[in-house]
């Protein structure tokens, strides 16, 4: 394994490492819980954005508040926040990307109210809706502006005046660079140049690294992959399912020689996708990207939610595998639709 791939793997596995380093170095860190929070705005305001993620199985202590019907990721995040693992965050931004996140917000606020738990950072709820109609769009854009105002105020409160604001277009440019690379990676996957496990690691590391470092390593890894010989594989699989924040499922699918070439999930293939436009109105450009193109269980109608999948299976997928955790009560409904889609 190359040095750069090792670095990415390290960060994929040690998810708080960079955030803590930044914090120790005096850079204020803002956490967010999923893919529909515009990290470009966080960076513009001078904060380090980190994805808050956790994957544990012992919920002793937090299970007195959160019922077992929640998915493992939400329960894990809730638990770790209560127990203090994320108390270094300046702010935690929770978007309305799923109902579980809405509840996570309410539960955290309530525990804070009831117990004064000092581990719970300030929380901002980003009420971005995902139904694709003009009313929700207008509401969402307003929310995007409010988030920007909130971040600006945080910035003012924390940094001294002489701190120079990053113009919006720099983080956007960075995002586009990453997206370009990830789209290249997606092509390599169909050419069988890497396994799904590797791809998940490479993509996922993005959420836990300084993005400039990430790009540097990503570029080297891509170069290395481009000269590999294609693997022999029996079937090309696409995975659809609940947030896949680990590689276990891919490992189990690939152990018999299959290869996972794509995921309908922001932890996988959908971290890339179309680029963010750059114009005089960067807030609008960011909004368009996050509102129209982010995967979320709340995207409506289903036809819109499945557009990506529909295009992707034309690229030569042999099989769609569902990844549903045992608590799923949402995506299980889509099996029916996807079956019809695949004929």
């Amino acid at each position: 394994m190359s040095e750069s791939l090792k670095i990415l793997e390290f960060h994929y596995q040690n998810r708080t490492f960079t955030a803590l380093e930044k914090h120790k170095a005096g850079v204020p860190v803002i956490g967010y819980t999923s893919n529909t929070v515009p990290i470009e705005l966080i960076e513009t305001a001078g904060f380090y954005p980190t994805l808050v993620d956790a994957n544990i199985t012992d919920f002793k202590g937090s299970d007195q508040y959160m019922e077992p019907v929640f998915d493992q990721r939400t329960k894990s995040i809730f638990h770790e926040i209560l127990s203090g693992k994320w108390s270094f965050l300046n702010t935690l931004i929770i978007p309305r990307t799923s109902e579980a996140e809405h509840k996570l917000y309410l539960y955290l606020m309530e525990v804070k109210r009831l117990t004064n738990n000092p581990n719970i950072p300030e929380i901002y709820f980003f009420d971005l809706l995902h139904t694709q109609n003009p009313l929700s769009e207008a509401y969402g854009f307003e929310q995007m502006n409010l988030l920007d105002v909130f971040l600006r105020n945080q910035q003012k409160a924390i940094f001294s005046k002489e701190n120079i604001t990053t113009p919006y277009h720099l983080p956007i440019h960075l995002s586009n660079q990453i997206k370009n690379h990830l789209n290249q990676l997606a092509v390599y996957r169909y050419q069988s140049l890497l396994t799904g496990v590797e791809a998940m690691t490479i993509i996922g590391a993005m959420y836990f690294m300084d993005r400039k470092d990430y790009i540097q390593n990503l570029e080297i890894v891509l170069l290395e992959i481009s000269v590999r010989k294609p693997m022999k594989n029996s079937q090309k699989l696409l995975v659809k399912g609940n947030c896949i924040n680990h590689t276990d499922f891919h490992e189990s699918l690939e152990k018999d020689g299959n290869i996972v070439v794509a995921e309908d999930d922001w932890w996988g293939s959908r971290a890339g996708g179309s680029l963010i436009e750059i114009s005089e109105n960067p807030l609008k450009n960011l909004f368009d990207k996050y509102y129209f193109h982010s995967p979320s269980p709340r995207v409506f109608p289903m036809k819109k939610a499945h557009e990506w999948l529909q295009n992707e299976i034309l690229k030569g997928v042999d099989l769609v595998e569902f990844y549903l955790n045992k608590d799923d009560d949402v995506l299980g409904w889509e099996k029916f639709w996807v079956k019809e889609l695949l004929g």
Partner: peptide, 23 residues
Amino acid sequence: CDCIQRIFEIWAEKFGTTFYPLD
């Protein structure tokens, strides 16, 4: 909740009728 749009959409499609959601 996140499931209700799926239930109603599949249902409305089967009926061949309009589904009007309130976000």
